[in-house]
């Protein structure tokens, strides 16, 4: 398989995954509706004797539409809020990660080399030259790209990445980051994180209902109040379960999308540099380095999806990055 074919495949898979994500949101809406409808069914049927025809059916368009609208709106608002939060351009992210911008006229040998390699890749990929940040305190070998568009994108590397890689390897890593910028991966990631937050927000509302009902049950004395609280308790738990399950699957899909984008970036790195040994050598060197690709900055955990190599050690259920030996 050549690198163009690999890129096509990664793009195609991403499309499917994003579609699954949309289906997940639709599923969340339907599941939330089911919980609400079941709750209403329970309330109404307990008041009626069983001989008579129940005035509600399980599927009721008049209930479904407002439910769908409210749930959809909630997801939309929550994800909009999250995206707004994440929106600070690449510079903000780089500074929060402890990066220092490299001045254009730097005389330091390694900084000079890094700036040159970035310019080379900018020519090879046709993307404007981004600002370059170095994380002076980081000894591990890692790099990230951040920003929404090609014009506000930045590339950040750890000091270890700048100093310990050979020129070709550095070129491979930078080309990989350029692919993220060129393919709009940062924007895609932000969107997915927003949607994920939206789905988890539904779980949060369910949890809130549950807690409220729990407190009300202890306070309320009379029988009907206690019964209502019990119903609310069950409904809250149901909504919470739906949101959590939705969130879990959304997280899985997000991790899978992330992995595909990494494959795409590796294939693009080969396209830009025409040298598969660069990126390959860099991955192997990370494997051999005692600090690997670790990043110690406290902010790094929130931004782990941006990084080129795994920023943390230890097994993870949802690796967002492909294993270099896999």
């Amino acid at each position: 398989m050549d690198f163009f074919e690999q890129q096509d495949q990664a793009r195609k898979k991403t499309k499917w995954l994003v579609l699954y994500f949309g289906l997940g949101i639709a599923g969340t809406i339907v599941a939330t509706y089911s919980v609400i409808a079941a709750t209403r069914f329970y309330i109404v049927s307990s008041d009626y004797d069983l001989q008579r025809q129940l005035p509600v059916s399980l599927f009721d368009l008049e209930l479904f539409l407002p439910t769908a609208a409210v749930v959809g709106l909630l997801i939309l608002l929550a994800s909009g809020y999250k995206m707004l939060q994440l929106q600070g351009g690449g510079r903000v992210v780089a500074q929060e990660l402890g990066g220092r911008e490299i001045a254009h006229g730097s005389r330091d040998r390694h900084e000079r080399r890094l700036l040159n390699v970035v310019e080379e890749m900018s020519i090879a990929s046709g993307v404007p030259v981004p600002s370059v940040y170095v994380m002076d305190g980081e000894d591990g070998i890692n790099a990230f790209a951040a920003g929404r568009t090609t014009s506000d994108a930045v590339i950040g590397v750890t000091r270890g990445c700048m100093q310990k890689l050979t020129r070709d390897e550095l070129q491979g890593v930078i080309a990989h980051e350029f692919s993220h910028i060129l393919n709009g991966d940062m924007r895609l990631n932000m969107r997915l994180m927003g949607w994920l937050f939206g789905i988890l927000f539904i779980a949060l509302i369910g949890e809130m209902c549950f807690r409220l009902a729990l407190r009300a049950r202890w306070i309320g004395n009379d029988r009907s109040g206690a019964a209502a609280a019990l119903v609310m308790l069950a409904a809250g738990a149901g909504v919470w379960l739906v949101g959590s399950l939705g969130g879990f699957f959304a997280n899985l899909i997000k991790a899978a999308v992330s992995r595909e984008r990494e494959y795409l970036a590796d294939a693009s790195a080969v396209q830009f540099t025409r040298n598969p040994d660069g990126i390959g050598g860099a991955l192997l060197r990370i494997g051999g380095h005692k600090r690997g690709s670790q990043v110690g900055a406290p902010m790094a955990r929130d931004a782990s999806h941006l990084f080129f190599g795994a920023a943390f050690q230890g097994p993870s259920l949802l690796p967002t990055l492909p294993c270099p030996y896999g």
Binding site: R112, N116, E119
Partner: peptide, 18 residues
Amino acid sequence: MLQLQEELTSTESKVAFA
């Protein structure tokens, strides 16, 4: 000398990509 070599290497690969 090292700096000049780096700059020359870089311009060479920039020429290649351009």
